[in-house]
Design a protein around this nucleic acid. Structure first.
Lengths: 239, 239
DNA sequence: CAGAAGTCACATATCAGACAAGTTAACCAA
DNA sequence: TTGGTTAACTTGTCTGATATGTGACTTCTG
């Protein structure tokens, strides 16, 4: 006979649960303001510190945002949080992240080729067009939007979130890469064609083709990143 | 002349940063006990609530664990946190999670077949042996250990963490599944052979073979889960 | 009347003191 | 050795006071 660990649940934990429950049930939605600490501790009949503890924990979990003088607000999903404390861009970590991205993106694109709706295609097209228009400044943003549109088309929200997390934790590297791109027209050209090929494969619902196209694209990007970064690797070291 | 936005950074945020920095720099490693709140607020020259706020936030982020009467401890990565607020096992979410797991596991096993060390093989072997020994009670635990050993062998720590996250957020479903298994000897038999096949492929460094074997295994598991759950689907609804 | 400035209510942020409750280790006695 | 008590140290909770940020309202002024 085994015994479960007896853990006298702390008051703040109970408060936390209650609040999470209310959010999950929809009583408070994204952007809503929660009752003030005073109100909460009165209606729950606990001290202020217990309520504060619960709210602070939820802030750490990323479910709420506490603004002094205003109140506490429910934040929607903040995917950045997933890899938040992992933003230590040593070379090995970046390689690992990129590998995960490769795995996810190549799988996602296969799903997208099968599940994509018309709206998804429109979103991808839009991102691509914007990218070729404003080549030099914020092409990175639209590049990201293109990939996210694909992830969205996969029909699996968790995959979408994961990719968003990874992208945001690779922010710095991505920004570096797009600066690299901006300086070399031939890279823009190549990448544009790779994107178009991926798009085409998704349009004609060719999962295997889309997979290959994405694989090609990511390999190319990885190669160029390595090339670009080995030149100024001292820059990476310090960041 | 531009002015930077003056954001009076809260004391608790500064404290939080300091602690995170110490953890990142390695002054405190996984499992270590942080100084007590009293000590911290003395050496940082701030009030207890500021320190408490910081620690509570870190607890929410999953970086530390606060145990009453003992102290505050650094928890290495606590993967459960990633998908923490996603433990709403409606059918669609489970399907999405399982799909992500499929993608990750099949990729991981390919990497493992190439990168596995001798220690990795020993760990897998051990998990498999334990599983066939104590068939009925905690086979689930060793099943999980087997998969985690593979993930570890992939050489990509982020992949390992992600899989751990997903497993722990599927805890309930997994537990249900293993209860299902325990009641049907033929399932045990099938799964045992699937595991052995995966193991074999990894041993002889056959990435493609390992991929196929894992695919086969997961498809089988998915099929059995669907079968088992459709019977008692009312159970899932309520949880 | 319109806009700037002041005022006030209310929110969180922080501090500090007191006590409750859990953990550990050391000590002591049967 | 075993079991119980105690002491020291930890976090948990409550509370009251004060500081500070925010927004709405009022008042002053041209």
């Amino acid at each position: 006979m085994e015994f479960k660990r007896i853990s006298s649940q702390k008051i703040s934990d109970k408060v936390e649960e209650q609040i999470v429950r209310l959010i999950k049930e929809g009583s408070y939605k994204q952007g809503d303001k929660l009752p003030s600490v005073r109100e909460l501790c009165e209606s729950l009949e606990v001290g202020r510190s217990a309520v504060r503890d619960a709210l602070t924990t939820l802030k750490g979990r990323g479910l709420v945002e506490i603004r002094q003088g205003e109140g506490t607000f429910v934040t929607g999903f903040n995917p950045k949080r997933y890899f938040k404390h992992m933003l230590m861009p040593n070379q090995k970590e970046i390689e690992s992240l990129f590998q995960v991205r490769e795995i996810l993106e190549t799988s996602v694109v296969k799903l997208a080729a099968v599940n994509r709706s018309e709206e998804d295609l429109v979103a991808m097209r839009k991102a691509l067009d914007h990218m070729s228009l404003c080549k030099y400044d914020d092409s990175g943003q639209h590049d990201c939007q293109f990939h996210m549109a694909i992830a969205n088309a996969s029909g699996n929200p968790i995959l979408h979130q994961l990719l968003e997390s990874i992208s945001s934790s690779m922010e710095k590297s991505m920004a570096d890469f797009h600066r690299l791109i901006a300086s070399k027209p031939e890279l823009i050209y190549d990448i544009h064609h790779q994107h178009e090929l991926i798009m085409e494969m998704i349009v004609c619902e060719d999962a295997a083709g889309a997979y290959e196209a994405m694989m090609l694209h990511l390999s190319y990007v990885k190669k160029q990143m390595r090339k670009g970064f080995s030149i100024r690797s001292e820059y990476i070291q310090t960041h």
